[in-house]
Nucleic acid binder design. Structure first.
Lengths: 227, 227
DNA sequence: TGTAATGTACGAACCGGTGAGTTAGTTTCC
DNA sequence: GGAAACTAACTCACCGGTTCGTACATTACA
């Protein structure tokens, strides 16, 4: 049996020794490097030796802390999703009118995707594997997202004020926004190769950022004139 | 040196012997199985032995026909993209009014993504590898797409008739439509695991199909009332 | 002193790729 | 028409590097 490290939880407790804090730092460093390696090469393509080579630690320590390549990968996923949740909880749009609220939410989602390329790649990789690893993690299965409540509130306010005419579901709206932001980052390489347009370039990025906001606003206003 | 097969081109010529047609069939079968294997497991995760095991041919023959794992993968990509182009050329919406034309195009794109899961996965995989294989293929680099002309025409007609108020770029519009359709299929597993909603289930699929049409129409009509 | 952390070296399966020879369809030549 | 020559298509056995994972000894710390 492989022994497990002392700190089972990710939260550093108050009564920790210097030794434990060192170990926690090593753990975090492994996760950092592993995230890059997995994002760059996929699960099967990632090399444990390569992760070890890019750090001070040895491969032995990776197995000491995480037990297996798969558990390391799951730990990377959990950390990445935790960061996303944290970011989502930081969004503050309650003070805005519904139209501006949803537009701002869309643009912040856009920025968030733009700033977290590795996370996007991990999600894409995980989907290729049919989310089998996410399902193995109790920390991630059926997690939901804080933004959903936010969207729900904006939608309700918009319908009440008459700004929105389209009866929409919060998850659908979340998907509509996410899909655009996700696609631009995730598919930038094939898109660039096929259409000769680099969607990550500043001028395109800014235009597409405005576009996602206008798109969601136009959709929710909807029903302007009948078909 | 490894010898190359007789048929350098993919197009079966008229003066082919039965032997060559047999070989062509074997080639096609390899591509079919390889597409599944690559789509299921990614490039690094795919096993040449596994592809061989699922057919009558041996691994040696795969190397005889395609030379290397990478060239086989590229051949799979080329075939998949060729099918997409063929489908896109089949779209007929010129007889429709702009609004209905763009809505129909969006819904057909939706259907197409829904019906070609393997292709979606290949694109996702290729993007993880930063499209390095697509760039290695002369057949695929800077290819463009027939739909772009179609969208361009619809956009022009819509602006001329006054149905559309939003000045939009054809590539942007294509991306707006594609991103939604792509995301629903590509990310269905993580989305399902996180939100407990199976976007591939019939009831959701039908609603989302309508949604993509309404979204693009709403966006192009746009500018209903100022901010 | 006991336990957590770490270094070293290695095992064993896996996996992409190949050398070399064989079978059988096609063409050539009389 | 048919034997001989040619070669594309195919089989079999095998290699060598890679890669995840671990056994075991050792060190540093509480």
């Amino acid at each position: 049996m492989t022994s497990q490290p002392a700190t089972a939880s990710n939260v550093p407790e108050s009564g920790t020794t210097e030794r434990q804090r060192d170990a926690e730092r090593t753990r975090a460093e492994i996760l950092e490097v592993a995230q890059q390696e997995f994002a760059r090469n996929g699960y099967a393509g990632a090399r444990v030796d390569e992760i070890a080579a890019r750090m001070r630690t040895t491969k032995r320590m990776i197995y000491y802390y995480f037990g297996s390549k798969e558990r390391l990968y799951i730990a990377v996923l959990e950390k990445a999703y935790a960061e996303v949740r944290g970011m989502e909880r930081g969004i503050e749009v309650e003070h805005l009118a519904p139209i501006e609220a949803i537009r701002t939410l869309a643009e912040l989602t856009f920025d968030h995707h733009d700033a977290h390329r590795d996370f996007i790649k991990l999600v894409a990789i995980e989907n290729i594997h049919q989310a089998e690893h996410i399902r193995k993690s109790e920390a991630l299965a059926n997690l939901g997202t804080p933004v959903l409540d936010l969207i729900e509130a904006i939608l309700d306010a918009g319908m009440a004020s008459g700004d929105f005419a389209t009866e929409a579901d919060a998850i659908d709206v979340h998907m509509l926004i996410s899909s655009f932001c996700f696609f631009r980052v995730a598919n930038q390489h094939t898109f660039g190769a096929l259409f000769g347009r680099d969607m990550a370039a500043p001028e395109h990025r800014d235009r597409l950022r405005r576009m996602v906001g206008e798109m969601i606003v136009a959709y929710l206003r909807g029903q302007a004139t009948g078909t």
